Simulated assay, not measured.
Amino acid sequence: MDRAAYHQGPFGSAHVGRDAIAAHWTATLSRQKDPVVWFGVPIVSVDRAAVEWWCILHDPATGVPRTAAGCLVLRLAEDGRCTQFHEYWHGAQDTAVEPSAEWLT
């Protein structure tokens, strides 16, 4: 979708269009190493979906781990493609923390 948008948090500017979204994710992923990612069970409605996520990443320069957890909220077009992608997350610097067993259920 040419007008698809990715929003990181509620206050930042949206990355609008496929090229802008791809450029953002290319830059973001280049600053991360050895990701380990967990996803919760998605919640899906007619034109929306949401899923929780948890990850441990490492700084490519120092190897220092980081833990982050958050939620993705998607709005879907009639053809099933994502038109709006909102991500909310929290991070813990300089530590690797796996999700609890309760989180995984």
Rank of each mutant, 00 (worst) to 15 (best):
E87L: 02
A92W: 08
I43M: 04
H7M: 09
C55A: 14
A61V: 05
D2T: 12
A101T: 14
P10F: 00
D2V: 02
A4M: 06
W54S: 05
L76M: 08
G91A: 12
L29R: 15
H90S: 15
W54C: 06
Y88P: 02
I21S: 06
W54N: 08
A61E: 14
W89S: 14
A14P: 08
G91N: 09
W54V: 05
T28F: 07
G9R: 09
G70Y: 04
I21G: 07
E98L: 05
V64C: 04
A61T: 09
G12I: 01
Q93P: 00
G9A: 06
H24N: 07
S30Q: 06
A68T: 11
T83L: 03
Q84I: 04
C71N: 10
S45T: 15
L72T: 15
D59V: 04
C55H: 14
D47S: 13
Q8I: 10
A22W: 05
C82H: 09
W25D: 11
V51Q: 15
W38S: 08
E52D: 14
V44G: 07
S100F: 10
D47E: 08
T62D: 01
T26D: 13
L57N: 14
I56W: 08
P60D: 02
D2P: 10
D47C: 07
G70Q: 12
A14V: 10
W53G: 09
Y88W: 03
V16W: 01
L29A: 12
A5N: 05
D94C: 02
M1P: 15
L72M: 10
E98K: 10
F39V: 06
C71V: 12
H7K: 12
A27E: 11
W53M: 04
A77M: 02
Q84D: 10
G70R: 13
G9L: 02
G12P: 04
A23H: 10
W38Y: 13
E78F: 03
I43C: 04
A20C: 04
L72N: 15
A23N: 12
I21M: 06
F85H: 15
L29C: 10
E102K: 11
E52P: 02
K33P: 01
P65Q: 07
T105C: 08
E87D: 07
A101Q: 13
W53T: 09
W53K: 12
A50C: 05
A96S: 08
S100Q: 07
S30W: 00
I56A: 07
V97Y: 03
S100P: 02
A50N: 03
P60M: 00
F85W: 13
A49E: 09
G80Y: 03
T28H: 11
D19P: 03
T28M: 05
H58K: 14
H15F: 06
W25A: 05
